[in-house]
Design a protein around this nucleic acid. Structure first.
Length: 768
DNA sequence: GAGCACTGC
C-alpha cells in the first residue's frame, strides 16, 4: 500500500510503492535577477523577434483604428464578439494588401480570429467577383467563368466543418440539416458558406466561402488544374506542414507564377496563414523565382489573444521523467489554488505515448490516495488517439464535484487536434513519438524524439487560453536552446510514394523539379519511382500509365489502389472482399481494441474467436466486416461484446460505401446487394486468391522463414518479428506478407498474413 | 507481448 511518511525527517520525501521520491529542490524557481533572459512568456519573445522582416517584404503591422473598419455584415448577435477579435482592427489593411498583392502571408496567433474573419473581409471585394472570360483551348476560343469563391483549407476534417458552421452562423446563413453523411453535392438552400470534407459535403448554391481539407483541394486540382472556380485560396495552419499542404503550396506557386492563360488572365490570390511567427521558409518559397516582382508577397502579423504564460525549466537534466512528473504535479496540486477569477486551474501534461501515460496515471492515483484528506482530490484523465470517443470526451468535461483538480495526461493530440478547457498549468516532457520513413530499408520507425522549439512554445501556450498560466518544462533551459526551431515537415519523414504519384497524375513530369518548400532526398524520390514502376503506375520512361491514373482516382494509398485494380481482374475476381479488407485496415490504427489484462482477453475470447482466421489478419478483418454487416439487430452491442473500436468500424463502413460506389461508377463491378447479407465464410481457396491479390501491391512486403526460425524480408533481408497485435503472433509459417513494417523496440511486421513462398516470385513476374 | 497525430471526387 503506498503511503506518504508524514513524519519523516524530510517532509519532501514521498513513497510510492517501493519508490522513494524527493520533492526537495523542485519547482523552486531561480530568482528573477539571476536570469539572463526573463522567464516570461516565450511566445511574446518569439513574436517580437519576428517583427524584423528581411528586405524585400512589405510589412504592415500597425493599422487603422477599429473605427475605420466597416461595420460587420451578417447576424447582429455576433457583432460584438467579432469586433473584439484582434483581427478586426486589421480588416482594412488586409483588404488593401490583397488589392495590391497576389500573395499575402498572414501570421495570427491562436485566438486572433483569422480563420473565421479573413474570408468574410474579402468575399465582397471587386477582385472576388465571378467573371466570364475567353479561354484559348487547343487553338479555339471558348467562354468560361473564373472566380467568385474563396477556398479555405484546413488540415483536419473537424476544423473545416466546425469553422464552416461558425462562419455561416456569423453570416446569418446557417448551414441547415442534420450532422453526418450527406454526400449530396448541393442543397436547395442558398447560403454564403459551405464545406467539403471526405464523406461530408455541404455546398449550398451561392456558396462564396468554402472550407475544405487540404486533401480535398488536391482532389479538385485533379479535375481543375487552374482552380477556376476560385478567386482566392486561403491556406490555413500551414505551419503544420502536412504532405498535402506542401504539395498544394507547390501547385499554387505554379499557378501564380505561370502565365494565367488557363484562368483567362485573372490572377489567383493566395493567402497563407500561419500561427507560428517563423515563416521565413514560406515567404521565401512564394517570393523566390516568381514572375512577379519580389514585393508581391506581402506580410502581416496580428497579435493573438493569449494570457501570459510563465515558463520554468528544471535546473538539472531529469534522470526519470515519471518521477519528475509526479513531483511537479503534486507540488503544484498542494501549493496552488483550485481556481481563480479566470476559472478552473487544471493541469495538462504532455507525454510521449499510451504506455507512458498509463504508468503515470497509476503512479499519480497511488500517490493521491495517500494525500491529506483535507487537500483537494485529483482525477486523472488519459488522452490519446486510440481511446474511445467517450473516454476522450471525459477529458474535456468540467469535473464533477468542486473539490477536485483535473489532471489530463495527453500525447501531442492536445497540441493541435483538441483543446482541453480549464487548463492553466502545462507540464512538458520535451519529447514526442515521431514516425520516420527509412527509404533505404523500406520501413518506418516510431521513436520518441526531442520536440522542436515551436512545439514547446505551442505546448506552453495551452496554459494561457483562459487565464495567466504556468508551464513547467521537464528539461533544462540549455536543452531547450539545443532544440530545432521547427518540426521536420512530414514530407521529409514519410514514404513519398503517394506524393510522387499525386504529382505525376497532375502533370508533373520531372518530380525532382517540382517546387517544394522542403525537398525529400533524391534517394527517397528515386525509391518511390522504382516502387511505382513495380506497381505498374509509371512506364519505363517515367510517364504515368493508365493503371497509375486509375490508382490516383481511389482515396487510398497507391499499394491499396493497386490491390483494388487487381481484385477487379477476372483472374482474381474478389473485389467485394478486398474492399471490405481495405476499409478495415485504412480506418484507423486497429479496429480491434487492445486488451490489457488476461481477464479482459478471456472475456472476449469466445466472441472474437468466430472472427479469427488462421490465414492471418487480412482474412480476420474480412470475417469481421462480413459478420458486422450481416448483423441486423444491434451493431453497437455486437462491437462492445467483441471489444471492437466502434469509431473505426463506422469509419470503415463509410470507406467501404465510398469504394463500392467508385468501383461501380468505374465499371469495375455491378451494384452490390444491399446489407445485411447472410454471413458465408470464405473458402480456403478463395482466401488464397485474396492474399495473392494483395501480394500484387505488397510483393516486397513479404518475408520467408529462415532455417533459424526467424523471418527474413524480401526487400533488404532484415529479420522481422510478427507484431503482438497480429493473430499470427508467435506462429511460424513458411512465408508471410505484411502491410506495415515498423521499428519500435525491434523490427515488427503488422497486419500479417500467411502465404506460400512460391507466390512471391510469381507476383514479381506479373509486372505490367 | 505492444500501439505519436492527421488525411483522400
Amino acid at each position: 500500500m503506498p503511503r506518504r511518511r508524514k513524519n519523516e525527517a524530510n517532509e519532501h520525501l514521498i513513497r510510492v510503492g517501493n519508490r522513494v521520491i524527493s520533492l526537495e529542490g523542485y519547482l523552486t524557481k531561480k530568482p528573477r535577477n539571476e536570469d539572463p533572459v526573463p522567464e516570461g512568456n516565450r511566445q511574446v519573445e518569439q513574436v517580437v523577434a519576428s517583427h524584423s522582416q528581411p528586405d524585400g517584404f512589405k510589412t504592415e503591422r500597425d493599422s487603422e483604428s477599429p473605427s475605420s473598419a466597416k461595420p460587420p455584415t451578417g447576424d447582429p448577435q455576433y457583432f460584438a464578439t467579432r469586433q473584439a477579435l484582434p483581427l478586426w482592427a486589421h480588416q482594412e489593411a488586409i483588404r488593401r494588401l490583397l488589392r495590391q498583392n497576389d500573395v499575402v502571408v498572414l501570421v495570427g496567433e491562436t485566438g486572433s480570429g483569422k480563420s473565421t474573419q479573413v474570408p468574410q473581409f474579402l468575399y465582397q471585394e471587386k477582385w472576388c467577383q465571378r467573371r466570364r472570360v475567353n479561354l484559348k483551348v487547343a487553338g479555339s476560343t471558348q467562354e468560361a467563368s473564373v472566380g467568385g469563391m474563396i477556398a479555405i483549407t484546413q488540415p483536419r476534417r473537424v476544423a473545416a466543418t466546425t469553422l464552416a458552421h461558425r462562419v455561416s452562423r456569423e453570416a446569418g446563413t446557417p448551414l441547415s440539416g442534420g450532422e453526418g453523411n450527406s454526400t449530396s453535392k448541393g442543397s436547395p438552400t442558398k447560403g454564403l458558406v459551405g464545406y467539403s470534407v471526405r464523406f461530408d459535403h455541404r455546398v449550398p448554391s451561392g456558396t462564396r466561402l468554402k472550407y475544405l481539407t487540404e486533401g480535398m483541394l488536391l482532389q479538385e486540382l485533379l479535375r481543375d488544374p487552374h482552380l477556376r472556380q476560385y478567386s482566392a485560396i486561403i491556406v490555413d495552419e500551414i505551419h503544420e506542414r502536412s504532405v498535402d499542404v506542401d504539395l498544394l503550396s507547390g501547385f499554387l506557386k505554379q499557378i501564380i507564377s505561370g502565365d494565367k492563360a488557363g484562368r483567362g488572365g485573372i490572377p489567383l490570390k493566395v493567402i497563407i496563414m500561419s500561427a507560428t511567427a517563423n515563416v521565413n521558409t514560406i515567404k521565401a518559397f512564394f517570393s523566390d523565382g516568381a514572375s512577379e516582382p519580389k514585393d508581391s508577397v506581402a506580410f502581416l502579423q496580428v497579435e493573438g489573444r493569449q494570457f501570459p504564460v510563465d515558463i520554468a525549466h528544471t535546473p538539472k537534466p531529469v534522470p526519470d521523467i515519471q518521477e519528475s512528473l509526479l513531483k511537479t504535479i503534486f507540488k503544484l496540486h498542494t501549493e496552488e489554488s483550485l481556481s481563480d477569477k479566470h476559472g478552473r486551474k487544471d493541469i495538462l501534461a504532455f507525454l510521449t505515448g499510451q504506455e507512458e501515460i498509463e504508468s503515470a496515471q497509476r503512479l499519480i492515483e497511488e500517490h493521491a490516495s495517500t494525500l491529506d484528506p483535507k487537500l483537494p482530490k485529483v482525477k486523472v484523465f488519459p488522452l490519446f488517439g486510440q481511446l474511445s470517443m467517450e473516454a476522450q470526451h471525459d477529458a474535456f468535461q468540467p469535473i464533477k464535484g468542486g473539490f477536485t483538480r483535473k489532471i489530463v495526461l495527453a500525447t501531442n493530440i492536445a497540441e493541435t487536434s483538441v483543446t482541453v478547457p480549464g487548463v492553466r498549468y502545462v507540464i512538458d516532457c520535451g519529447k514526442s513519438k515521431v514516425k520516420q520513413f527509412r527509404p533505404r530499408l523500406g520501413m518506418e520507425s516510431l521513436l520518441a524524439m526531442p520536440i522542436s522549439k515551436s512545439s514547446a512554445i505551442q505546448r506552453a501556450g495551452r496554459a494561457g487560453r483562459e487565464g495567466p498560466g504556468k508551464c513547467f518544462r521537464l528539461y533544462t533551459e540549455e536543452t531547450y536552446e539545443t532544440l530545432e526551431t521547427m518540426d521536420l515537415p512530414e514530407i521529409l519523414r514519410t514514404d513519398v510514394l503517394s506524393a510522387v504519384l499525386t504529382m505525376k497524375a497532375r502533370g508533373i513530369d520531372d518530380v525532382l523539379d517540382f517546387p517544394l518548400m522542403d525537398r525529400p532526398e533524391i534517394e527517397s524520390v528515386e525509391n518511390a519511382l522504382v516502387q511505382l514502376h513495380i506497381l505498374g503506375a509509371i512506364a519505363d520512361d517515367g510517364s504515368i500509365t493508365d493503371m497509375g491514373r486509375k490508382m490516383v482516382s481511389f482515396p487510398v494509398a497507391p499499394r491499396y489502389a493497386r490491390v483494388l485494380l487487381a481484385a477487379a481482374d477476372a483472374k482474381y475476381d474478389c473485389l467485394l472482399e478486398v474492399i471490405d479488407i481495405i476499409s478495415c485496415v485504412t480506418s484507423g490504427e486497429d479496429i480491434f481494441l487492445q486488451l490489457r489484462s488476461e481477464e479482459a482477453r478471456e472475456e472476449v475470447k469466445e466472441a472474437r474467436g468466430e472472427l479469427f482466421r488462421r490465414e492471418g489478419d487480412l482474412l480476420t478483418y474480412l470475417t469481421t466486416m462480413q459478420r458486422y454487416t450481416a448483423e441486423n439487430s444491434d451493431r453497437l452491442r455486437w462491437c462492445k461484446e467483441r471489444k471492437i473500436n466502434i469509431r473505426n468500424m463506422k469509419r470503415a463502413l463509410n470507406i467501404r460505401k465510398q469504394l463500392r460506389g467508385l468501383c461501380v461508377r468505374q465499371g469495375m463491378m455491378e451494384q452490390p446487394d444491399e446489407d445485411p447479407q447472410p454471413f458465408v465464410p470464405v473458402s480456403p481457396e478463395k482466401a488464397s486468391i485474396i492474399l495473392k491479390c494483395f501480394l500484387r501491391g505488397f510483393t516486397l512486403k513479404s518475408a520467408i522463414l529462415a532455417p533459424d526460425r526467424s523471418y527474413v524480408t524480401s526487400q533488404g533481408k532484415h529479420v522481422v518479428a510478427i507484431h503482438p497485435s497480429s493473430v499470427l503472433h508467435g506462429q511460424k509459417k513458411e512465408a508471410i506478407m505484411f502491410l506495415e513494417h515498423v521499428f519500435t523496440v525491434k523490427n515488427y511486421a503488422k497486419k500479417v498474413s500467411a502465404i506460400q513462398a512460391a507466390w512471391i516470385p510469381e507476383a514479381l513476374g506479373q509486372g505490367e
